[in-house]
């Protein structure tokens, strides 16, 4: 995994945390939501991850006129054999990059999200398994922008992690310009691992030990989001499950066979902040979700 990270870092300069979190999502069998302004490297991150893994990758550019069938695939009538034949949609790949997911109509969005959750696609009564490992990296423009359909809370909940890349600092940006000057850096990437290895690593992630006190800590952290007056909607129990899975992946990435509260703390903001809704009071105080979650982390005693 260190190699994957190193290979990705060659393309994405100055964002080791984002790379690490995308690997966490990969290992923890979760999906990644990247919310950021255009042009900061969202697509590049997804592509570099897919390239480094030697996995198939599809990119879906979400637009308002994109249909669900474009995502999942359609049954086409074959006149020669007089049968319906399934034409796989763009979602049939190991890594699927859903670009600007909030530009598509809600119907299309939900088609993608269903596939994400079920790991399979049902068209005309036929169920088609998606390739394993399967991971969706969706990018989303901040909802304030024009012409977007913000994802409903229920659907945001399906994403394990939400990260935002942010603008690179000056030196990283200069380095980026240099790498892009001569050739596309993605071209130079060679796969460092394959799907089979990834499946093994995912199994290893599942077997990372989580002590009872860690579980308690996770639960009190998640419960705290439900109790605070600053949040109108707290995190779901699914969030607890995701948080523990992600923490396991983090522990594995750090070479440990058990989860530490530090893993949980490091992941609390990316796992929880996109699942909560701020209360009016918090809006008035000009707080934002990551800030509130980070505050909670410092205020819930470590078990």
């Amino acid at each position: 995994m260190g190699e994957v990270a190193a290979s990705m870092a060659r393309v994405i300069s100055g964002k080791p945390e984002a790379i690490r979190l995308s690997l966490v999502a990969l290992l923890a069998e979760g999906h990644l939501l990247i919310e950021d302004v255009p042009g900061v490297g969202k697509t590049m991150l997804a592509k570099s991850l897919a390239r480094s893994l030697d996995c198939s990758m599809n990119r879906i550019q979400f637009t308002p006129d994109l249909l669900p069938g474009d995502v999942t695939g359609v049954s086409v009538f074959d006149q020669r054999s007089s049968t319906f034949e399934f034409r796989a949609g763009a979602i049939f790949a190991h890594i699927v990059l859903g670009d600007e997911i909030n530009r598509a109509s809600p119907k299309t969005q939900s088609a993608l999200l269903e596939a994400m959750e079920e790991q399979q696609v049902s068209v005309d009564g036929q169920t088609h398994r998606l390739p394993q490992p399967f991971m969706v990296i969706a990018t989303q423009n901040p909802v304030e922008m024009e012409g977007t359909y913000p994802l409903p809370e229920a659907q945001r909940d399906r994403f394990m992690l939400q990260i935002s890349l942010g603008y690179p600092d000056a030196s990283a940006e200069i380095a980026m310009i240099s790498t892009h000057e001569l050739s596309d850096p993605l071209e130079s990437l060679t796969p460092v691992t394959d799907a089979a290895t990834l499946r093994t690593l995912r199994l290893a992630t599942r077997s990372v030990y989580t002590s009872d006190s860690i579980k308690k800590y996770v639960v009190s952290l998640v419960s705290a989001t439900r109790g605070t007056p600053l949040l109108r909607l707290g995190a779901s129990p699914r969030a607890s499950v995701h948080l523990v899975h992600a923490a396991k992946a983090m522990a594995l990435l750090s070479g440990r066979d058990h989860v530490l509260p530090d893993d949980v703390q490091a992941l609390a903001v990316p796992v929880l902040s996109h699942r909560v809704l701020l209360s009016t009071e918090a809006h008035l105080d000009r707080r934002n979700a990551p800030g509130i979650i980070a505050d909670l982390v410092t205020r819930v005693p470590v078990a």
Binding site: G227, E281, D295
Partner: peptide
């Protein structure tokens, strides 16, 4: 008790 948790 809660405000403390939420940083109010």
């Amino acid at each position: 008790a809660w405000a403390g948790l939420a940083g109010v």
